[in-house]
Design a protein around this nucleic acid. Structure first.
Lengths: 337, 337
DNA sequence: TTGTAGGCGTTATCAT
DNA sequence: ATGATAACGCCTACAA
């Protein structure tokens, strides 16, 4: 056991093994040029000294970290964690390890992570922005310095930036269309507490579907709330009493749909007989609700995978062309409709 | 990235501003010693050159990263993400940023992250191990080199290692006790597909409760499965047909409880009239199920926070005493019992 | 097969 | 108030 505080470096190993740091370095990388004998000697010293190389110093020297960063708003949301999971799969396949920075929807943190990670802590970045418009400057800077990154999880307004995403307008459209096909005319949109930026596309799809099928859009059919769970539950109860004619609820995402369903149970209403419910995201849990939840699947796993592929390609092949990939969501029908 | 544009360093800024790198560095850190005039000049050059400091080089120089790593089995599990969230709160309060390494329950990845992050990429580590016994060696190494870390999320068998955790034996005990108080005698334990290591404590608590109340333990009341969701659902259906006398199910965790509830609905049974269900972890969703789920709350947010506090304390004050903290879980009663 | 030495981008200690 | 320059720990031509 070493003296406290004294960190042991490649130099210590070299001294102990009676060779140069270069030799130790080569042994560390299993270079065949080193004689069996010296190699063993070095390995022995590494063991007994309990030497661990500094990835920091190594990265600085080789100008590469072999790790890529993912910036996410929060990991409690299954949509994000699925996406991350998809990216991780591809990346670790390809020799990269993944570092996640969770911003908790905090703009300063988002900026900080952007700076930190692009400051060479990682070789590239997959960004799921919470505040896309506020970080455009930083993205431009990153582009200017040719730091590889891809944006995902939102519609990027920057035309010259890599991004992969899903068509949420289309997703909402097929969800509402499905409701219409089921005979519903009075369909409300439960928007929860989500910010404009992350709900506008789905709202657009909702309105589009109504238009296409000649159903007038009513502003008062949009249910907003302050928080996602308890407040939605309350608001929906109130809404349904005021609007008994409404027989279907399209929800911004599955968690909201769960709160909505809870509210309907509170009112002793049956799903889908009295009211039909459609969610968005198709989280795994939806299948295990007592009444399985019909939902829109954005295939987030795939989104993550594709983002990772684009990123790795850009890093390794120095490709410069911008890629925009938009996947089309699928309707998953269960008992709630 | 490549020859596209040479990466611009603090040296370039110094040259452009007609001063030394030392001066630039001082400006970068808002040191008051620098004359207003030069400071502005330097800032201007930084802007126009679009200079971003290398956190890598900086960390190497100051021997500190101001970031701490959290190694988790997976982020899709709310238990882990809550814990991480708790840690993040405390850490960012205290000027650290957090880097998450998700191992996806892969031993090699777990080892890799351990090496990487302790290789000075971070100043300290919070570890939620999947394979505690397999990484003990690495933990010992880290101790030997005085690298700060704390283990959590499991019972650590290493007596001389920091860890904070919850008493899952106790948690399961109060869950099963609650069921017994409700008049149940025949209580099954739904174990799902979880590995021995992560279910043994709760099993112990289950058995203990039975013993205390004079109920014989039956091996065939333990329901195992291959996967967590669809398989549990199937297995529970089969089990309930074979054992109609069983009126209560204690589940290893809430997700399993959800699959269990689904199975009971499949059988047209009512909860809690026909069968009572208790989960574990008290995930937020439990409240929003049509029949609210009674569960055990381990206060994982707090666990993460405490782990973070211990870690920071160890880093900053060089404290050497080992800390073992065990929180006691609470019963949260809802409609399922 | 192995050693020498310069470089990676910052910081920090002396000087000036 | 600012500048030189030696660390920080490792890699890698280029030598030997």
């Amino acid at each position: 056991m070493k003296e406290k505080g004294k960190k042991i470096t490649i130099y210590d190993v070299a001294k102990a093994a009676g060779c140069s740091t270069a030799t130790v370095s080569l042994v560390l990388h299993n270079d065949k040029r080193i004689k069996e004998e010296t190699r063993n000697k070095v390995r022995e010293c590494i063991k007994t000294l309990n030497y661990k190389p500094s990835y920091l110093a190594r990265s600085l020297a080789i100008q590469r970290t072999q790790s890529i960063g993912i910036i996410v708003p929060e990991m409690t949301n299954p949509v994000f964690s699925e996406l991350v999971h998809g990216a991780e799969g591809y990346l670790s396949q390809n020799g990269y390890n993944v570092i996640i920075g969770s911003t908790n929807q905090d703009l300063d943190k988002e900026k900080l992570y952007l700076d930190m990670l692009s400051g060479k802590k990682v070789d590239g970045l997959i960004i799921l922005p919470t505040f896309l418009s506020e970080i455009e400057d930083k993205l431009k800077d990153m582009q200017a310095m040719h730091f590889p990154f891809v944006v995902t999880g939102v519609k990027s307004s920057m035309k010259n930036v890599n991004y992969v995403s899903t068509n949420k307008v289309e997703g909402a459209f097929i969800g509402v269309e499905h409701l219409i096909h089921r005979g519903h005319k009075n369909i409300a949109f439960v928007r929860g507490s989500e910010v404009e930026e992350h709900s506008s596309e789905r709202l657009e799809g909702y309105i589009k579907a109504l238009n296409v099928y000649g159903i007038p859009f009513r502003e008062d059919y949009i249910i907003k709330s302050r928080q996602d769970f308890s407040d939605v539950r309350e608001k929906v109860r109130g809404f349904k009493k005021e609007h008994p004619e409404v027989t279907a609820l399209f929800c911004l995402y599955d968690f909201i749909a769960m709160a909505v369903m809870k509210a309907l149970y509170d009112l002793k209403l049956s799903i889908p007989k009295d009211v039909a419910v459609v969610g968005y995201d198709n989280i795994q849990l939806g299948e295990y609700l007592p009444v399985g939840l019909t939902s829109i699947d954005g295939n987030n796993y795939k989104v993550g995978e594709i983002a990772a592929r684009i990123l790795v390609n850009q890093i390794t092949s120095d490709a410069e062309e911008i890629q925009h990939i938009i996947l089309t969501p699928k309707l998953v029908i269960r008992e709630s409709t």
